[in-house]
Simulated assay, not measured.
Amino acid sequence: MAQPSTSLTVLVVDDQAVPRLLAKAAVESLGHRVLECADPVAAVQVFLQRKPDLVLLDVEMPVHDGYWVAQQLRSAEQGGWTPILFLSGLHGDEDVWRGIEAGGDDFIAKPVTTLLLAAKLRAMQRLMAMRAKLLERSEELRQANAQLQQLSQIDALTGLANRRAIDQRLHQEIAACRREGRQLTLALLDIDHFKRYNDRAGHVAGDACLQQVARLLRETCLRPRDVAGRYGGEEFVLILPATPRAGAMTYARALLRQLHLAALPHPDSPVSERVTLSGGITTCVPDAHTTAEGLLLRADDALYNAKAKGRNRFFSYEMKVDTEEDRPHHRPH
C-alpha cells in the first residue's frame, strides 16, 4: 500500500487495551505517529499539550464517553480544527447524529480495517489541506484589505492622513478626551498665497512645496496621538490631544520657526520671500455638546482672523490673540 505523503500525529483514545493496540498498529502501518490514551480526562490534557493532527476516539467509555471528550476538544481549540473520527460498534443514524453534534467528523465501525482507516485518514488529510489553503487565502485577503484600508486614509501626494482619516480620527479624539477630561487642540493651516505660488512656479513645483510642508508637519508631531493631515488643496490639519491653549500657541510658534529655518522660497508672496503659514487654533475639553463640525468651524474662524491680521501667524479662537501678540516677552509679569 502506498504511504501517505504527509505523516500525521494521531491520538488514539480507547479505554480497552486490545482495540487501542489494534488501532495503533493500523495507524502506524500507514506511516503515521501514534499517541495513546486510555483515560478520557487524560486524553483532553494530552490533546492540549501535544496538539495531534487527528484524533481516533472510542465512543463507549466509562464515566465520560467519546461524545464528552469530543465536546471538550472542540471547546479547547478556540477556532482551530482537528479532525475527530469516532471508533464505535454503534453506527446507526442516531449514533452518527450524536457524534456529529458533539464535534466529530466521521465514524469508523469496529473492528477497524487498515484499508478503511487509510481511506478515512486520506479524506481527512485532503480536508486539512483545503482548510490550510483557505486560511492562507483568508490571511492574504486580510492583509490586502488592511493595506487598502491604510491607502484609503492616506493623501497620495503628501503621505499625510487624508480628509477621511482626519474626520475619523477627530471623532475618536473628541470621544477619548471627553472620557479622559483632557484638553484637545485642533488647528487648520493654510500655505499663504499658494495660488500665486502655483501661478508663478507651476503645479509641479507647487506639489513639491506641499510635500516639503507636509514633511515638516509630520516631523513636528512627536507624540503618538498627534496627527497631521492634508484637508484639501493647500490646507492642512493638526490634531493635538492633551494640548492646552498656551501649549498650542507655543507649538504654533515653534512650527513657524521651523518653517522659517527651512527657507522654502516663495516666488510671489507679498508676505515674505519664503513660504509661510497661517493657522487657526481652537482648544477645549470636549463635553457632550462638542462636535467635530463645531471644532472645525471654530478653527476656520480663527484661521480667517490669522489671515486678516497679516498672515504668517496662528490665531487662537479662545484666547483671541495670535502668535505675534502672544510672544512671551509681550506677556505681563
Rank of each mutant, 00 (worst) to 15 (best):
I154H: 02
E293Y: 02
L57F: 04
V59N: 00
P4W: 01
V96L: 13
Q45K: 14
L240E: 03
N162D: 05
R98N: 11
G159S: 07
P241I: 09
V213P: 03
F47I: 07
V18S: 07
L116E: 14
A302L: 05
M61P: 06
C177Q: 15
C177I: 10
L116N: 08
P62R: 01
M319A: 15
A288D: 14
A123M: 11
D53G: 09
R122E: 09
H64W: 10
L148W: 01
F314M: 11
H91G: 03
G229I: 07
E293N: 06
L261G: 00
R311M: 08
P40N: 04
Y231I: 10
R331V: 10
E140R: 04
N305C: 09
A38C: 06
P40T: 01
T113M: 10
P244W: 00
L261R: 13
T282M: 03
R33D: 15
L160M: 02
D301S: 12
T185Q: 15
P244C: 10
E140G: 05
P83S: 08
L186E: 13
D106T: 09
L21N: 13
R178Y: 03
E136S: 09
L160C: 05
R182F: 12
G79Q: 10
C221F: 04
G229N: 13
T158H: 08
A38D: 14
T158C: 12
A288V: 00
G103V: 01
L90K: 08
L8C: 03
P62V: 07
L157H: 05
Q150L: 12
H64R: 09
R178G: 01
L186D: 06
L217V: 14
A102H: 00
M1C: 11
E136L: 10
R169V: 12
I108M: 05
A302G: 08
A299E: 12
A246E: 14
C284T: 15
V271D: 11
T283D: 09
P4K: 02
Y317V: 00
D190G: 09
Q72S: 08
L303I: 04
T243P: 02
L57T: 06
R274L: 08
A262N: 03
S88G: 07
L116R: 11
V204G: 06
G66H: 01
A42L: 11
K309C: 13
N162M: 02
Q78Y: 01
E173M: 15
Q153I: 05
A252S: 05
P286R: 04
L259Q: 04
H193W: 12
S29D: 15
P270I: 14
H171R: 08
H333C: 07
L148E: 02
I281D: 01
L189T: 11
P52N: 02
L134T: 13
K24I: 03
C177N: 13
L117H: 13
D167K: 09
D58N: 13
A165M: 14
E219F: 05
L116K: 09
L117E: 10
G294R: 08
A175D: 11
E324W: 09
A26I: 07
A165S: 14
I166F: 15
T220K: 14
P328C: 05
A70N: 03
L277Y: 04
V275E: 12
A42F: 02
R33N: 15
T291I: 09
L296G: 07
M130D: 09
A123K: 10
L295I: 11
S152M: 08
A118M: 03
